[in-house]
Design a protein around this nucleic acid. Structure first.
Length: 627
DNA sequence: TTTGTGGTTGTTCAC
DNA sequence: TGTGAACAACCACAA
């Protein structure tokens, strides 16, 4: 028996430091080691992601590749363009591989994929070695110690975590890497189905991701944005990726001991933008350019040294990492339904507007990403205005515009816009908001995104729906003068601070002086010096939503209840006299356009109501179940 | 079992 | 310009 010939498969662990899986690979004392990355079509076509996040991913790959080359000039990150499920059997044979090593992934799709790959490896006589590493503790172990149940609070996570054991201390990056072996790719490349391509709207050019298995020059190079069909000029984020940058920033954070040791998340400002008030480490954690355990122990060691004045979880830096682990472990227990309401026993059913379309698949009944029923034209318009950052509420609009441009907004800013879209304004389904965040966030982490949207919409994790963020007061608390709004909503940059959060209250004189007109709905062609009026009376909507939430809570359905699946939930809500719900246009509206719509169309209104009663989305789903 | 307390991150008003 | 109470009332957790 010769020495092992090892493929190390980099996935969401794009780093060399603190990699238990990479250490396991090197411990084999390999004759050859190929560090590879495979472009998974699932990520390229089925996970929404704009150019900003792909740029961050490529940054991480480039940096990792350079670091590998520094350890061994013959090596680098070898990028292969084919689905792992079809690639590996061919690779095992062609490269005479003995071992496949990787860090375990955690979401439902990745677990399925890995199961397939492991089975294929076994069939090919290739030994598979995996290690946990994305989280502080292995999420499956946390779940086991939590009685097989999802961790729904940080207390649960912490007590289960204690039973798993101490969070491992980070290990250093390797100091050597073996040579890669030969890399023949004379086999046929299996090209993936590119449809549906959820990212097509972001691709300005031709998508050449899978044109050649080893890249355009056959040298396994890191892909460019152009090859992925993006134009480099389109990237609008200032936030760049890579392990080197992550480690440098970590040093900067901890060089200010007072900041790091006394960090209290609820006291950091969502309106701070230069610099921002939090660490901005989330995208590095997402792509694995930073180890969560390194971050944790840097913070924990400092806190112990700092003494009594240090902050504590859940508000402290370590607390933030605990929340992340909580969501991962909740996802590990609940599985695929964690990112949706349907079939999720832990997620309350609330008949929000714009519910997801449902598809029955082998993996269970899933919400189709991005596709939804327009049960209410009014809610649809509110949703579009929210997404476009033209709600007429400047603080909300500033946040949404920063999100789209930079792929990142402060955590409390996410609270603000999420509450506004769901239980505190539009009464639109949280899955719509989660879709938008998936598309735009460079730190999009499915577990954290779904978990936080459930939290903010009060469907799981959190239930104090009467605590509602005001688009006026909340921002003012942090940024009295509205500097943040002036930065992101330049139409209003000269407006007196008295009106910056509610420009509709400004006199014509004040507006003229600031050079801005309040009119229209903000959709369609942008006009200079024009900003839309507020899309509804917030106070009224707040009351409508809160009353509706109270009713939905008292009815008490969850995502796995039969009544939710067969459509009979509607009878319960009708009996309770609910009008603010899916299929019904409830609530009031100060939007001039809509008033017109309504005054012309009582008939139209009634029609949409009867259509919805006849067949709502869930009814359709019920039919599917019966057939 | 019941009951009380606390919960990372609300708002508004009174003083 | 800061603190405390009322608002209306959720769930988790501990005793």
């Amino acid at each position: 028996m010769g020495k092992p010939r090892v493929v190390y498969w980099f996935r969401t662990d794009l780093r060399l430091h603190d990699s238990l899986a990479l250490k396991a690979a090197l411990d084999l004392d390999p004759a050859v080691l190929w560090p590879i990355f495979t472009w998974d079509p699932h990520y390229v076509y089925r996970v929404k992601g704009g150019v900003n996040r792909f740029q961050f991913l490529l940054d991480c790959q480039k940096d990792l590749s350079e670091s590998i080359q520094k350890l061994n000039t013959k090596s680098k990150l070898f990028v292969l363009r084919e689905a792992p499920q079809t690639l590996f059997p061919k690779l095992f044979k062609a490269w005479n591989v003995t071992h496949l090593v990787f860090e375990r992934d955690t979401d439902a799709y990745a677990k399925e994929r890995d199961k397939t790959v492991i089975a294929l490896a076994e069939k090919a006589g290739v030994k598979v070695i995996t290690r946990s590493g994305r989280t502080l503790w292995d999420s499956d172990e946390v779940v086991a110690k939590n009685g097989g149940k999802p961790t729904m609070s940080t207390t649960q996570l912490q007590s289960a975590g204690r039973k798993v054991g101490q969070i491992p201390r980070p290990i250093p990056a390797p100091t050597y890497l073996p040579d890669p072996g030969d890399m023949p790719v004379k086999f046929t490349q299996d090209k993936p189905a590119t449809e549906p391509d959820l990212n097509a709207p972001h691709r300005g050019g031709n998508d050449e991701t899978y044109a050649n298995i080893a890249g355009p020059n056959g040298d396994f190079a890191i892909a460019t944005l152009q090859e992925l069909g993006f134009s480099a000029a389109e990237a609008t984020t200032p936030h760049r990726g890579g392990e080197t940058l992550a480690l440098r920033r970590l040093e900067e954070i901890f060089s200010d001991e007072e900041y790091a040791a006394t960090f209290q998340k609820p006291k950091t400002s969502p309106a701070a933008f230069e610099p921002q008030s939090t660490t901005l480490m989330s995208p590095f954690l997402h792509f694995g350019a930073l180890s969560p355990r390194l971050f944790y122990w840097r913070a924990q060691d400092l806190v112990e040294k700092y003494g009594k004045k240090a902050s504590t979880p859940p508000e402290s830096l370590t607390g933030q990492l605990l929340f992340r682990d909580m969501y991962f472990a909740a996802q590990a227990a609940i599985g695929a339904p964690f990112i949706q309401t349907l079939n999720n026993a832990y997620c309350r059913f609330i008949p929000w507007h714009l519910p997801s379309k449902i598809e029955a698949t082998d993996m269970g009944d899933i919400a189709v990403s991005g596709q939804y029923h327009v049960d209410s034209p009014q809610a649809e318009k509110w949703f579009l205005r929210w997404k476009a950052g033209v709600t007429g509420f400047p603080f909300v609009d500033a946040l949404m515009r920063q999100l789209r441009a930079e792929g990142w907004i402060h955590h409390l800013g996410r609270h603000m816009v999420a509450c506004f879209l769901t239980r505190g304004g539009c009464y639109v389904h949280w899955e719509r908001g989660a879709d938008v965040f998936e598309e735009w966030l460079i730190d999009h982490e499915p577990a954290c995104n779904a978990g936080n949207w459930q939290w903010l919409s009060c469907t799981a994790f959190y239930s104090q729906y009467y605590r509602c963020y005001s688009p006026v007061a909340f921002g003012q608390k942090w940024d009295k003068k509205g500097e943040f709004i002036r930065r992101w909503v330049p139409e209003l940059k000269n407006l007196d601070e008295k009106y910056i959060y509610e420009p509709w209250k400004a006199s014509i004189g004040a507006l003229d002086k600031a050079g801005v007109k309040i009119e229209g709905d903000g959709l369609g062609t942008k006009r200079d010096g024009v900003y839309p009026g507020p899309m509804f009376d917030f106070g009224e909507r707040r009351n409508v939503c809160m009353t509706a939430m109270k009713r939905a809570y008292s009815i008490g359905l969850h995502g796995n209840d039969d009544k939710v699946k067969d459509g009979t939930w509607k009878e319960l809500f009708e009996k309770a006299g609910e009008t603010e719900m899916e299929g019904l246009e409830g609530g009031s509206d100060d939007d001039a356009d809509h008033k017109k719509e309504r005054s012309i169309g009582t008939g139209k209104h009634a029609r949409s109501r009867s259509t919805a009663t006849k067949e709502g989305p869930m009814d359709k789903f019920a039919k599917k179940l019966k057939t």
